[in-house]
Computed example of a mutant assay.
Amino acid sequence: MNQTGKLPITVTIIACNEEKRIGECLSSVQWSDDIVVVDSGSSDRTVEIAESHGARVIHNPWPGYGEQKQFASSQAKNEWILNLDADEYITPELAESIRSAFSTTSPESPVAFECNFEHFLMGKWLRHGEAFPDPHIRLFNRQHGDWNSRPIHEHIEISGEIGKLEGTIRHRTVESLAEYIDKINRYTDLQAEIVLQSGVRVTFPQLFTRSLWRFLRGYILRLGFLDGVAGLTHSMTSTLTSYLKYAKAYELQNREKE
């Protein structure tokens, strides 16, 4: 901890036209002594809001999710990095857990930490199904890992011990169900390309069985039904995501044969 009481952690955020959400994100990490926002061409007030919260704004053309987050890590002043998306913010409990972890670090301490996520859908924070708990590594020492370069569903690859933090990162991904469906359509385009590039050949039975299993796992086995209409909607959209991913890959592989 430095003389200002702030932690020597760089918070990295990638953004583009996130004026509606980035303020809440930035307000939740004012205990950090270095905040970096990598902007890929916002035309709204994203940059202005980021700078008003004390962030360093760096412009970088969009290369894909994984590579953009790698670039953000390379701009950090500190060895420890906490990554957030612009539509995420950390709870006070998680902030306190991070502060506590940094007060007890030692050579044997973890080199990265994971925490659970909470997702907001249809006016409700989901607490069951695939939506919770949803653990991810977001705080890490860059000497021991970094983001991979996947264009979507990127994740941090770590070499060393991983600890667990209390509290959550809250994720307000969309403001409406229509926006959520648009997002699913965009993401499954990328996912289908990845399936095709991996060499996996999608068959007709897989289109049905993969989607059915996704629904049963999230809605029944992981108790998604306890979240009411929001839980049903999340399970159904997750099922749709699975189906579209493989249906689009099926379409692409058949198009190659023509």
Rank of each mutant, 00 (worst) to 15 (best):
Ile152Gly: 09
Gly5Ala: 04
Gly66Lys: 07
Asn141Trp: 04
Arg172His: 14
Ile81Val: 14
Pro8Lys: 01
Asn185Lys: 13
Asn60Phe: 15
Arg45Met: 02
Ile90His: 02
Thr241Pro: 00
Asp39Ser: 02
Asp134Phe: 15
Pro110Tyr: 09
Ala249Asp: 10
Leu223Cys: 06
Asp87Gly: 03
Arg99Thr: 09
Glu175His: 12
Glu166Ile: 05
Ile90Met: 13
Leu177Asp: 06
Glu24Pro: 00
Val195Leu: 05
Cys115Met: 15
Ser52Asp: 02
Lys6Gly: 09
Gly23Leu: 05
Tyr243Asn: 03
Arg142His: 06
Gly163Glu: 09
Glu114Asn: 12
Leu232Phe: 15
Pro133Arg: 09
Phe113Glu: 06
Ala112Lys: 11
Val11Arg: 06
Pro151Lys: 14
Phe208Tyr: 14
Phe117Arg: 11
Pro205Leu: 00
Asp87Cys: 04
Ile194Trp: 00
Ala76Pro: 12
His155Phe: 13
Ile158Glu: 05
Val11Ser: 07
Arg255Leu: 11
Gly23Trp: 07
Val174Lys: 13
Pro151Glu: 14
Val229Met: 12
Pro205Phe: 00
Arg186Gln: 13
Asn141Ala: 06
Glu88Leu: 01
Trp213His: 15
Thr168Met: 01
Trp80Tyr: 10
Asn116Trp: 02
Gly145Asp: 06
Leu244Phe: 08
Asn254Cys: 08
Cys25Asn: 11
Leu207Phe: 13
Lys124Met: 02
Pro63Trp: 14
Pro135Asn: 07
Ile90Ser: 00
Glu175Gln: 10
Lys257Met: 14
Phe132Trp: 10
Ala86His: 05
Val37Glu: 04
Glu93Thr: 12
Arg127Ile: 08
His234Val: 03
Gln191Asp: 08
Glu251Phe: 14
Pro92Trp: 07
Val29Trp: 02
Ile194Cys: 03
Glu18Phe: 03
Phe113Asp: 02
Asp34Gly: 00
Tyr246Gln: 10
Phe102Leu: 01
Phe117Lys: 11
Lys77Phe: 07
Gly160Trp: 01
Leu207Met: 11
His136Val: 10
Leu121Asp: 10
Gly199Asp: 00
Glu79Thr: 07
Ile14Leu: 10
Ile9Asn: 01
Gln253Ile: 06
Asp146Ala: 09
Glu67Val: 10
Glu166Lys: 15
Phe208Thr: 12
Met1Arg: 15
Ser238Ile: 00
Arg201Gln: 07
Glu108Ala: 12
Cys16Phe: 08
Ala112Ser: 06
Gly228Cys: 13
Lys183Gly: 03
Tyr65Lys: 13
Glu48Tyr: 05
Gly160Tyr: 05
Leu232Ser: 11
Thr105Ala: 04
Trp80Ile: 01
Glu179Gln: 11
